[in-house]
């Protein structure tokens, strides 16, 4: 049971209508507890790949198996953190975090308990009663992550969640994400433009080429868990950073 891959992509391809393919021949087997980053030039179909795993759109070639099911059937185990925080503006922070629990019908007291717990995890207990417009971009993103974690998903898909944030906030959130994962060891799929972010967070980095999006290379990231901010200054980290950047330059031509 535990040895079964949690996500399997077999020759997955996607085209929209009669257009040119966006993705082609994606082969990937992901074990429970992996942290997989997708990196590549714009137009390489990274976001589409996440949407395929989420079951929000269907592949036009190949097959995706999520925990032995189709992505649409496996949705209870999966949650997507969207590119922008994607909060409901009329709900307070706590109510936004509560939304998925409410929609799946958890009882009120359990919901409340879980929401409190999640807000603590992302360090937003003080902001529970605020509305999204009262928050900074980084805080909104934290709410979005708390909301995703509230349902304790086995698989978390993150679509460039920190792309719009400044580097300091981004580093902080990266570290927080790893801390959270020590508690809730979800399997993660992470789309990013930032090589440093990918190297810091991942167990594997998938470099994609564009037009159509193909797998260029899979880079294994050997650093031990749990990772600390100091990792960013080690020679091993820096050389892997350089290597990944080089690969990225190759596909960027």
């Amino acid at each position: 049971m535990t040895s079964r891959p949690i996500v399997n992509l077999e020759g997955v391809g996607k085209r929209f209508g009669a257009g040119a393919p966006v993705l082609e021949g994606i082969e990937l087997t992901v074990e429970r507890g992996d942290f997989v980053s997708f990196i590549g030039p714009s137009g390489c179909g990274k976001s589409t790949l996440l949407r395929l795993i989420a079951g929000l759109t269907e592949p036009t070639a190949g097959r995706i198996v999520v925990d032995g099911m189709t992505p649409a059937d496996a949705r209870e185990e999966v949650f997507l953190v969207f590119q922008d925080a994607n909060l409901l503006p009329w709900r307070r922070v706590a109510e936004n975090v509560e939304l998925p629990l409410m929609l799946r019908g958890d009882p009120t007291d359990r919901r409340r308990e879980r929401v409190g717990e999640m807000l603590n995890v992302v360090g937003l207990a003080e902001a529970a009663e605020k509305y999204p417009w009262q928050l900074s971009g980084g805080m909104k993103m934290r709410v979005s992550i708390a909301r995703a974690l509230s349902v304790a998903p086995d698989i978390l898909l993150l679509d460039e969640p920190f792309g719009a944030l400044d580097e300091m906030t981004r580093d902080r959130l990266n570290e927080d994400l790893l801390t959270i994962r020590e508690r809730d060891p979800f399997t993660a799929f992470f789309v990013t433009h930032s090589v440093a972010e990918a190297v810091f967070l991942s167990t594997r980095i998938v470099v994609l080429s564009a037009n159509p999006g193909r797998m260029h290379r899979v880079i294994e990231v050997p650093f031990a868990q749990p990772r600390t901010p100091e990792l960013r200054e080690t020679p091993g980290f820096l050389s892997l950073l350089a290597e990944t950047t080089r690969e990225l330059r190759l596909v960027r031509r």
């Binding site: 929000l56 949705r75 997507l80 969207f82 994607n86 939304l99 998925p100 929609l103």
Partner: peptide, 22 residues
């Protein structure tokens, strides 16, 4: 908003839930 609609899809929301809460 399309993204909010997809959020409700990710939550396996029913049609009635989507109407009421979104």
């Amino acid at each position: 908003d399309r993204n909010l609609q997809e959020l409700f899809v990710m939550c396996n929301a029913t049609r009635t839930q989507e109407i009421r809460h979104l």
